[in-house]
Structures are given as structure tokens and as C-alpha cells.
Amino acid sequence: MSTTILFTVISLSAIGSIAAIILYFVAQKFKVYEDPRIDQVEEILPAANCGGCGYPGCRGFAEAMVKADDLSPFYCPVGGNETMTQAAEILGKAVEAKDPLVAVIRCSGSPEHRKRVNTYDGASTCVIVSGLYSGETGCQYGCHGLGDCVDVCDFEAIYMDEETGLPVVIDDNCTACGACVKECPNDIIELRKKNKKDRKIFVSCVNIDKGGIAKKACEVACIGCKACVKVCAYDAITVENFLAYIDPNLCKLCRKCVDVCPTNSILEINFPPRKVKVEATETVETKKVETPVGPTGENEKKENDNNIINQEG
């Protein structure tokens, strides 16, 4: 009995030692040199592996940054400026701060505004509907509401509002990785500047049909009337193919365009309620559903200007 144990122990130890020696030499022979900074940079990255930077995973991003001479094309949307500064410190390079972005949904076509004319009964994916039809509504450009963007989001930053049938972005969770932007077959989602207090003004429509057709399909469609262009003091708005677009880099968030839009297709989000002037007309008030609306007060305007200054500084 004891000899069996002895032989077992001796032979197993011998096999183990030989294997260890072989492994050691093999490891030496095939050792790959890796820049230790790659590990350091990867350490500080958020490890979300979301691909928002355009590289396959955080390690790929770290490798590319270590190799590159100039860090300006690199940006980790999840970690933001803080992470990028840290990475730049490790690598001994400089990095410019970039404005943080957030995803916005450029469609307000809830069933209330955009009548459902058909019932879709196929595979429950936006990409299939968009490949075949204009969807359930008369607007072929708008949201199909089947939630491809929700499925693709790694950060639980989008959910479907059951009432409106539209996706809603949770600004705090959104890292602007861009996955939903790529996924959306109708290119409704856009990454826009995350202004102070998450304030945003944008045209919530992507319909490029002529005004009349667009309006017929959806009450809150942009009809390309150019009223907003005329009122914009900063030349931030352009109209192309009967569709207005507000350039986030030029927009100063003055909210004038919101008031003049006849179809309420320009949305203002996270702004404080406006002080309603006494003589505010009824028509203006009934226009806005989401936020109480009135003509811009003087004080408000100053506040806005201050915001802008703060932001620039």
C-alpha cells in the first residue's frame, strides 16, 4: 500500500517538474513584448467595451492610443474628458477637452400626432420594417417604435415610452457611445452637445417630404417653412429638403425658434418654465404640450446669455 502511494507521488512529481520546465522554456521562447502603458491605459478606461470610440473594445483603443503620436482623433465617450486627460498623462501627450455629447431622438410622432394607418405584423425589428415599408404610419422617415435602439444600448440609457411608442433617452445614463445611432435604420438618433443642465434645442423630425405631405402624415413634422431660419440670430438653422437642422455648435439656446415653429417640431428640453406674460396669446399657449410656453421674457434671455458665457469659459 505504502509503496503504491510512494510511487504515485514520485512519478507525479517527476511529470509535474518536467512539464514545468518545458512550459518555462516555451514561455520564454514565445514571449511577446507588450508596451506596459497599454495595460496602464486600459486600467483607467471604463471597460464597457462598447465600441463607441470606433475600436474593438477598450484594449484595442488603448493599443491604438499608445501607438499614435497625436491623441486628437481619439475620444472615449463613456469616460469623457476626465479619462482622456488621465490617459494623456500616462502617455505624456496632450489632449483637448471635447464637449460631452448625448443622444437625442429626432422624432415626436406619437400615435396622437402621427396616425397609424397600417398594422405591422412581421418580425419585430425596425430594420426589417424599414427595409420594406414606410412602417405603420404615413411617414417613412420617422421612428418605427420597435426598439432596436433599446436592444443595442449597453447602458440602459434608452427605454420605450409605451404611451408615445417612441424611445426616450435617459441623459444621465447615456454615454454617447453611438451604438443606437448606428443601429437606427432611419437615422433618427443624433449625438448632440450636452449643454449645461442638459439643455437641448433640436428639430425633432427627419421627414424630408414636402411640407404638405409631411404635415398630412404627422402633425408635428417639420414642414420646411423656414420660420425658424428667419428668427435665428446666430445663423444656426439651415433648411434642406424641407427639413430644418439646428447646428449645435452655433446654437446659443435662445429658444426663439421654438416659439415660431408652426408644427411644434422644435423641442426644448430641460429648460425652466417660461415666465408667461400677461398678454400671452392663447394660440401660443396651446401649441406646446410638454412645457408651458410663453414668449421669451427679458430676464430669461439674460439667464440664457449667462449660460452661454459660462459654457464658453
Partner: peptide, 8 residues
């Protein structure tokens, strides 16, 4: 009625 639509 609303027409049903779906791929073939």
C-alpha cells in the same frame, strides 16, 4: 380597417 402589412 387598418391594413395589415408584413413581409412575404
Amino acid at each position: 380597417n387598418k391594413l395589415f402589412i408584413s413581409p412575404s
